[in-house]
Amino acid sequence: MVKPTDILKEEPILEVRNLQTSFFTEKFEVKAVDGVNFAVPKGKTLGIVGESGSGKSITSLSILRLIQNPGKIIGGEILFKGENLLDKSEAQMRRVRGNEISMIFQEPMTSLNPVYTVGQQISESYRIHQNIGKKEAMLRSIDMLKLVGIPSPEQRVKQYPHELSGGMRQRVMIAMALACDPELLIADEPTTALDVTIQAQILELMKELQQRLGMSIVMITHDLGVVAETCDYVAVMYMGKVVEYAKVADLFKNPKHPYTVGLLNSLPRHDIDLGDEELTVIKGSVPSPDNMPKGCRFAPRCPFASEICVEQLPDLEQSEDGNQIRCWIYTDEWDGDPEVKVNG
């Protein structure tokens, strides 16, 4: 069994081992996150990609232990700076949230409380974690707004969220999350709801802040463009499992898992003229979670699937370039075409 830290060149700040989060309905259990392994390097960015329902958001909420009924973390370890967050009490966890690990959300339109001014909301971070007065918190909030590049912050702190644009609100969200100088920022699709031009600005801002503050980032996204732009490592998730975990350059140059290859092929590329041909798509759709395939989760949609893929679930294994992959093709047990070329 490979360790998620094997791939990193840097020290890990966060290591997730065999994380399992399930949702329980009256009749059955839905394994939203099923044995996820990855590590986040200090001061670098890990991307988690996958389509809707692959469990990436649930993974991020699990790290902060924000999963609510009927969901439950049922197994694994989340090691933050060597300590298992799953062993902490709720009160200890509250001191971690916002202070050491922060999170920003997808929808800037609904992520701010409509009844408080921007300044009051950023102040909340300080009021929760630091014993400082209202005035001092407000002054620091102004500094934070300056840091995230909001013009005339002295006026902006007095405005309500509905008076700001989407991009501005996302900047405010970032300011709130970074107020207490966390070491790890989890960004759950931070740019999905924004215009393309604003997306670029927000990503640029996050990169700049990362260099300035030296924090690590977990970037959750379904946009491979965002991954290429911002991440150092990437974990590709499919149906609650990591299928490929690699350095970003390797993943784009030499994708190994058929799912990753499918994702990349379904993107338009500027260096290849498709002519009249259409973009390739991954055939089929994600199976419903109550009808989980027995073997490899991707087998029903995989163009290379052979007998063993349908029957048995492969493990995450180290490939020859040091990355990690969950696919029978790269193992000795492979019973299909020995000459198969996944990314040819």
């Binding site: 902060l64 924000l66 922060s102 999170m103 959300f105 997808q106 929808e107 929760i128 969200m173």
Partner: peptide, 26 residues
Amino acid sequence: KLEYIDAIRSLGASDARIIFKHILPN
């Protein structure tokens, strides 16, 4: 269920703070 409640919880707010400061006014 709204995102700003998740957001404030992710900042480490206690249940009492969430209920009385962030839900009640809404």
